[in-house]
């Protein structure tokens, strides 16, 4: 099946800064696609090019196979949910949602019906007559969503959709967005700097760094098999152990060996990477010994920082609540072990 959106070698420069530097992506129909990156990674510029607010300096953007690179924003069957929501302050909730349909010159009756239906879907029907400044942050977010969705776009673009919400509401809305996307069956492309958000909501994630794609994959792929050191660091927590690469592993500065399964450099400066939750107390295929320096209780788990002679940075591991019952105290010597298949190696 042909992808809905195809981005081909898109470049966008602002003065001497190249915000987006040759990005190519294909996004499948019905996907919940996340563009993940730190600020300045070019993710928002890419999104604005999809919406039509920026013109690429090179490359093409196709929608359903048609070139829309130069199509103005008001002629694209693509809608954007703004980070600030950009609700029209002089219009009611219903008027905001109706605006896009009025632009399509739909009959009044149809507009009224579709607005009501949309407000029902986002559970805002009782607030239809309110103005944006009489709404809470979460309600505004839903109005913005409804306003974009009511036009039934081919693709809905969401710019940091949950950025303005507090942590608790954000958790709820992540699931809500996912449910809604499933319900309306529209392709969502969401820009976020929050890796948790991307992992929870998206079915595919593209990691951007300095205007280039670092990795594209399912949440599981990018978490379990990060393609680059940057991707490994950006998504989730990661321990890095610097050393010298050699076939099958990495030699630590203190002489110890870290065994690595899978691909990676076989010589030169490198880092071995392992997730905190993959490390257990007690020896394993890879073993380190050290002293507990800090403990941090996080509710579901307990994080231990262990100082080892193998690395300057302490090694972090996460114990489950059950294991935490018998956790060592600060200052105790511990042995840490993990499997070779849980270890990645990247060039330093």
């Amino acid at each position: 099946m042909r992808p809905v959106v195809e981005i081909e070698g898109v470049v966008r420069r602002f003065g001497s800064v190249t915000a987006v530097d040759g990005v190519s992506l294909a996004i499948a129909e019905g996907a919940f696609f996340a563009l993940l990156g730190a600020s300045g990674s070019g993710k928002t510029t890419l999104l604005r090019m999809l919406a039509g607010f920026e013109m690429p300096d090179a490359g093409r953007i196709l929608l359903d196979g048609a070139d829309i690179t130069r199509t103005p924003p008001n002629r694209r069957p693509v809608n954007l949910m703004f980070q600030s929501y950009a609700l029209f302050p002089h219009m009611t909730v219903a008027q905001n949602v109706a605006y896009g349909l009025e632009m399509e010159r739909r009959p009044r009756a149809e507009i009224r019906a579709r607005v009501a239906e949309m407000l029902e879907t986002v559970q805002l029907l009782p607030l239809a007559g309110r103005r944006p400044d009489q709404l809470s942050g979460g309600q505004r977010q839903r109005v913005a969503l409804a306003r974009a969705l009511v036009k039934r776009p081919r693709v809905l673009l969401l710019d940091e959709p949950l950025g303005a919400l507090d942590a608790k509401l954000r958790g709820q809305m992540q699931l809500e967005l996912k449910r809604l996307q499933h319900e309306v069956g529209i392709t969502f492309i969401v820009v976020t700097h929050d890796q948790d958000e991307a992992l929870v909501m998206a079915d595919r994630i593209a990691i951007l760094r300095a205007g280039r794609l670092e990795q594209v994959g399912t949440p599981r792929e990018v978490y379990e098999s990060p393609a680059t050191r940057y991707a490994a660091d950006f998504i989730g927590q990661m321990n890095f152990l610097p050393g010298h690469a050699l076939p099958g592993g990495l030699r630590l500065p203190d002489g110890g060996l870290v065994r690595v399964a899978g691909e990676g450099p076989v010589q030169g400066e490198a880092v071995a990477a392992v997730r905190p939750e993959r490390i257990r107390l007690g020896p394993g295929e890879n073993t380190l010994t050290g002293t507990v320096r800090a403990l941090a209780y996080h509710g579901l788990d307990l994080q231990l920082q262990v100082e080892t002679p193998a690395a300057a940075e302490p090694v972090t591991l996460r114990l489950t609540a059950g294991e935490a019952e018998t956790a060592p105290g600060i200052g105790e010597r511990v042995t840490l072990g993990w499997a070779a298949r849980d270890t990645r190696i990247f060039p330093a």
Binding site: N74, R75, S84, F88, G100, M103
Partner: peptide, 27 residues
């Protein structure tokens, strides 16, 4: 006037003139 209000109007299908008449001018 936040720039994104006019952008939102364009995004929702408003022409430049419609955006001026319905968003920029009233606000």
């Amino acid at each position: 006037l936040p720039r994104d209000l006019a952008e939102a109007s364009r995004d929702l299908g408003g022409s430049g003139f419609t955006t001026f008449r319905r968003i920029t001018l009233p606000l």
